Simulated assay, not measured.
Amino acid sequence: MALSAAQLFSVTGRRVLVTGGGSGIGAMVAEGFAANGARVTIASRNEKALEETAARIRESTGGEIDIAVADLASREGCEALAKDFGDPLDVLVNNSGTSWGEPIERESGRANWGWDKVLDLNVKAPFYLTRALLPALRAAAKDGDPARVVNVGSVAGVAHQPTPTHAYDASKAALHHLTRKFASELAPDLTVNAVAPGFVPSRMSRGLATWGLDFERIASRVPLGRVGGAPDMAGVCLFLASPAAAWISGAIVPVDGGHLARGLDLPAGED
Score class of each variant (00 low, 15 high):
A2H: 12
A5K: 03
A5V: 11
A6F: 05
A6Y: 03
Q7P: 00
L8D: 00
L8K: 11
L8N: 01
F9W: 09
S10M: 01
V11R: 06
T12C: 00
T12L: 00
R14G: 02
R15D: 03
L17A: 10
G21P: 04
G21N: 05
S23G: 13
G24F: 13
G24R: 14
I25T: 05
A27H: 06
A27L: 09
A27F: 08
M28I: 11
A30H: 04
G32R: 11
A34K: 10
N36H: 08
G37H: 07
R39F: 11
I42D: 06
I42Q: 04
A43Y: 00
N46E: 01
E47P: 03
E52W: 03
T53E: 06
R58H: 05
S60A: 15
S60D: 13
T61I: 00
A73I: 01
A73H: 04
E76W: 06
G77V: 05
A80T: 03
L81K: 13
L81I: 14
A82D: 07
K83E: 14
D84V: 07
P88H: 05
L89D: 02
G97F: 09
S99F: 01
S99C: 04
P103M: 09
E105T: 08
G109F: 11
G109Y: 09
A111M: 08
N112W: 00
N112M: 08
N112H: 10
D116W: 00
D116E: 07
L119M: 15
L119E: 13
L119S: 10
L119K: 02
D120W: 03
D120P: 02
D120Q: 04
L121Y: 05
L121S: 03
T130V: 05
R131A: 10
R131W: 07
R131D: 10
A132T: 04
A132H: 03
A132S: 07
R138F: 09
R138V: 01
A139H: 04
K142I: 01
K142F: 02
D145V: 01
D145H: 05
D145N: 03
P146T: 02
P146F: 06
R148Q: 04
G153E: 08
V158L: 15
A159D: 15
H160S: 14
H160G: 15
T163R: 08
T165W: 13
A170R: 02
S171G: 14
L175I: 09
H177W: 15
K181P: 00
A183C: 02
L186R: 07
L186I: 03
L186T: 07
P188I: 08
P188Q: 09
D189W: 09
L190P: 01
T191G: 12
V192E: 07
V192I: 03
A196F: 02
P197Q: 10
P201Q: 12
M204P: 15
S205A: 15
L208K: 05
W211M: 01
W211P: 00
G212S: 10
L213A: 14
F215I: 10
F215R: 12
E216A: 15
R217H: 09
S220R: 04
R221A: 12
R221F: 08
P223C: 13
G228M: 15
G229Q: 11
V236M: 15
C237A: 13
L238I: 03
L240M: 13
S242C: 10
A246G: 06
I248F: 11
V255F: 02
G258N: 11
R262Y: 11
L266Q: 12
L266A: 13
A268V: 12
E270I: 15
D271S: 10
